Simulated scan of single mutants.
Amino acid sequence: MIPRRRAPGGRRLRPPRTRAETAAALVALLFLSLIVHRLLGLLAGLGAYAWLLVLGVPPAAACWWLVAVRGRARRRAGRVPGLLRLSLQHVDALSPGQFELAVRDLMERDGIAARHVGSRGDQAADVIGRDRNGRVFVAQCKHTAIGGRVGSRVMYEVKGTAGPVHGADVAVVVTNGGFTRDARAWGERHGIHCVDRDRLREWAEGRRTLAALLGVRDVGSGHG
């Protein structure tokens, strides 16, 4: 017994059972025949160019599709390592929470496996990452109005928790603003790295990795 053919959707194909169905099938067949006839006539009129059309259109369509797919992939590359680039104008427009996520994504771009931990009671850590050598990066993020400055109190808090609580090998405070003179001096004395607006620009725009920016050996990113 020959099995019945199935339609693409899984339904069985069956012959017309009524006169109305037979008439509809004949009309559809006639319409399809007319389309095929018109296409053949068009190709015959083109002569030698018909083969160029037949052979050239599919490869051209395939190339267009590949370009479109690659373009969409680039636009979705927000968190793809090595591709993320942010301008300061974009950073300034972020909310504090979005800024923390951006810092996480920049760390991941540099080959640091990072997670966002910022929340109420985060104990002065918004992002924690680990590079391929097992070195722990702890970042406190301070999104400010343009011209805002981070004070010494933030540095005290990071010093008190980065190592003892989070096991940091590298502790850093990142801001789109600046640091007071006392905060910067205190951080230098106690090993807390400062990433101010100028250094953030270099990092966010992809000119330097975080490790290179902080002057520690760059591992896990393959560039810097």
Rank of each mutant, 00 (worst) to 15 (best):
V138K: 04
V138I: 10
V138L: 10
A139L: 15
A139I: 13
A139R: 05
A139E: 10
A139K: 03
A139T: 13
C141D: 07
C141I: 07
C141R: 05
K142I: 10
K142N: 04
K142M: 03
K142F: 05
K142Q: 06
H143E: 00
T144F: 01
A145H: 09
A145P: 00
I146F: 10
I146D: 10
G147S: 10
G147A: 14
G147C: 07
G147M: 10
G148P: 11
G148W: 08
G148N: 12
R149E: 05
V150G: 02
G151S: 13
S152D: 08
S152C: 05
S152F: 11
S152T: 14
R153A: 09
R153G: 07
R153W: 02
R153P: 01
V154S: 12
V154Q: 12
V154A: 13
M155K: 00
M155Y: 08
Y156A: 00
Y156E: 05
Y156I: 02
Y156H: 08
E157S: 15
E157C: 04
V158H: 01
V158Y: 00
V158A: 01
V158C: 00
K159D: 10
G160H: 09
G160T: 03
T161V: 09
T161P: 00
T161H: 15
T161W: 07
T161D: 06
T161Q: 14
T161I: 06
A162M: 06
A162P: 11
G163V: 15
G163K: 14
G163Q: 15
G163D: 14
P164K: 15
P164I: 15
V165N: 09
V165G: 12
V165D: 13
H166R: 10
H166P: 11
G167K: 09
G167M: 07
A168K: 06
A168S: 03
D169G: 08
D169Y: 03
V170I: 15
A171P: 04
A171R: 10
V172Q: 03
V173F: 01
V173Y: 01
V174I: 14
V174S: 00
V174E: 03
T175S: 12
T175A: 08
T175G: 04
T175K: 05
N176K: 11
N176Y: 13
G177T: 04
G177E: 03
G178L: 07
G178A: 14
G178H: 11
F179M: 06
F179I: 11
T180M: 05
T180D: 09
